[in-house]
């Protein structure tokens, strides 16, 4: 039975799509058959980050409306054979997603996949609610700034009141993923610290992803950042997924980078 995970945030541009791509890729690298779904109807970003935009023929809305079959619509990742992408439609309206339609597709996918990762659009409206409705677990992507934390708090409230789990009297398992973390700016008091965010949101911390140039480079090349095994962000995502799967790994990249040789010698 597949585990349905939503990657959500409320606020836009915090790193949901980056996270969805990295998370799904790392799950697949670790041997789990995974599909990642773009719920951002109208914008369609995930296929770019996954590097498969040229191979999009049919999309999620076609599938929901019975215009294409699963095998026609799913795009197999070019690097990982047990990873698939379900792209969003660029031309349709957000309202094309319906509870019944989404449920049918998820049920079909659940028959063959271990993990279904849902990349949510920004906001708290219809599209975001469709993406989270069937989730059993949620990765709350948050940047270390007040407005992002506030939106995350709102989306947690929605998970707790408007998801299928909530309707069944259960709760969605929440994971906090702090992204674009810049320890130097935290030290200068320009950004919230990990502790600040944990205290305000009061949900378990899954990982901290540093602000990293590797992310931009990776998305420009259409390669999820976990494939850059030497990069800080790639390693941080890999750690987060290992933790998600039950491994106990210490959090890294929380401190400012080591000072140079001279500073060390002179105690700067």
């Amino acid at each position: 039975m597949a585990k349905i995970i939503v990657v959500t945030s409320g606020k836009g541009g915090v790193g949901k799509t980056t996270t969805s791509a990295a998370f799904a890729s790392a799950l697949a690298m670790k041997g789990h058959k995974t599909v990642v779904i773009d719920f951002d109807v109208g914008l369609r970003n995930l296929d770019l980050v996954m590097g498969c935009e040229r191979r999009v023929v049919y999309d999620f809305v076609n599938l929901i409306q019975g215009e294409s079959s699963l095998s026609q619509t799913l795009i197999r990742d070019k690097k990982l054979e047990n990873l698939y992408v379900l792209p969003a439609s660029q031309t349709r309206d957000k309202d094309a997603l319906t509870i019944e339609g989404v449920e049918r597709v998820l049920n079909d996918l659940a028959e063959t996949f271990d993990f279904i990762v849902c990349d949510s659009p920004a906001g708290i409206e219809h599209g975001a609610q469709m993406a989270l409705y069937f989730a059993e677990e949620a990765i709350i992507v948050t940047n270390p700034e007040v407005s992002s934390v506030r939106d995350s708090d709102r989306i947690i409230g929605i998970l707790q009141s408007k998801s299928r789990m909530a309707a069944e009297g259960k709760s969605v398992k929440e994971h906090l993923l702090l992204t674009r973390y810049n320890p130097a700016r935290v030290e200068r008091g320009e950004m919230l610290s990990v502790q600040d965010v944990e205290e305000i949101l009061a949900i378990p911390l899954l990982g901290v992803i540093p602000e990293s140039e590797a992310v931009l480079k990776a998305s420009n090349q259409g390669v999820p950042v976990v494939h850059y095994a030497e990069s800080d962000a790639g390693q941080a995502y890999e750690d987060a997924v290992a933790r998600y799967l039950g491994e106990n790994r210490p959090h890294r990249f929380l401190e400012k980078q080591k000072k140079g040789f001279l500073k060390r010698v002179f105690g700067g």
Binding site: R150, D151, G157, Q160, A202
Partner: peptide, 8 residues
Amino acid sequence: EGNVRSGQ
């Protein structure tokens, strides 16, 4: 019992 979140 439980947190009351932003917007609620």
